[in-house]
């Protein structure tokens, strides 16, 4: 497709270049008066074109790590760098702008804006980035066509099936040509057949050069990834390359 799916805003990454790196990252938070050590000294690198699956039991720190990598959350200590730029120390305004232009988020429960149509949902991040109306509408249509929803652009989320909602959410995540895609349990709310469709979409995206980090319990999704990192109690316990 024209303009590419990702890497646009931050410049096209050369294959194999380190896009994302975490060094000795810790994240503690308070829960009911107790300190929870969600992430305990994790280090990892994600290269351009990688597809990394973070797996592990509930509460092992996968989602927390994903939030840290996407600058939604800040580490208690350690550094997280995107193409050498430390994002852990960004102020809220800069972190927001960073998420807008460099990160594509996909959530388990899709989280599309219920009051907007599929097309408008995809336009939303572009509108925020100041993309002209005609241009963003054209790209949104292009992305909808890419994820197979071109006939559903005027539908509201409530009028779409779970799989269609997740496809629209993936299209939204790609809107500003992010450096990488972060997905938290993207098949968690879907049946096996629909989930398989989403996995196939991820594979197609990755094949087209999109860097993906996905948190999942879904064995099929993990097996589709190039690298699988196992986490337990906030630590990386092993890593398997496909």
């Amino acid at each position: 497709m024209s303009g590419g799916l990702s890497g646009g805003a931050s410049g096209a990454a050369a294959a194999g270049e380190v896009v994302l790196s975490a060094r000795d990252v810790h994240r503690d938070y308070q829960l009911a008066g107790e300190t929870v050590h969600a992430v305990r000294g994790i280090s990892l690198e994600v290269r351009a074109g990688d597809w990394v699956a973070l797996v592990g039991p509930s509460g092992c720190g996968k989602s927390t790590l994903l939030n840290l990598l996407g600058a939604i959350d800040r580490p208690t200590s350690g550094t997280i760098a995107v193409r050498g730029r430390d994002i852990a120390a960004l102020r809220d305004r800069d972190a927001t702008a960073f998420r807008l232009r460099h990160v594509g988020f996909v959530f388990q429960r899709f989280y599309l804006m219920p009051q907007l149509s599929a097309l408008e949902n995809i336009e939303l991040p572009m509108a925020e980035a100041g993309v002209a109306r005609a241009e963003r509408r054209a790209r949104a249509r292009e992305l909808l066509a890419y994820v197979g929803l071109d006939a559903r652009e005027r539908h509201r989320p409530a009028e779409l099936s779970g799989g269609e909602q997740q496809r629209a959410a993936i299209a939204r995540a790609l809107a500003n040509r992010p450096a990488f895609l972060l997905a938290d349990e993207p098949t968690g709310e879907l049946d096996a057949a629909t989930g398989a469709g989403i996995i196939a979409l991820f594979a197609r995206l990755n094949a087209a050069g999109t860097t993906i980090v996905v948190v999942t319990h879904d064995g099929d999704l993990a097996r589709a990834a190039r690298r699988v990192i196992h986490l337990r109690d906030g630590h990386v316990v092993n890593e398997v390359h496909a």
Partner: peptide, 11 residues
């Protein structure tokens, strides 16, 4: 979610 996908506080 809006904040997560990069919508600014101002907006």
């Amino acid at each position: 979610v809006m904040r997560a996908i990069g919508v600014s506080r101002r907006h």
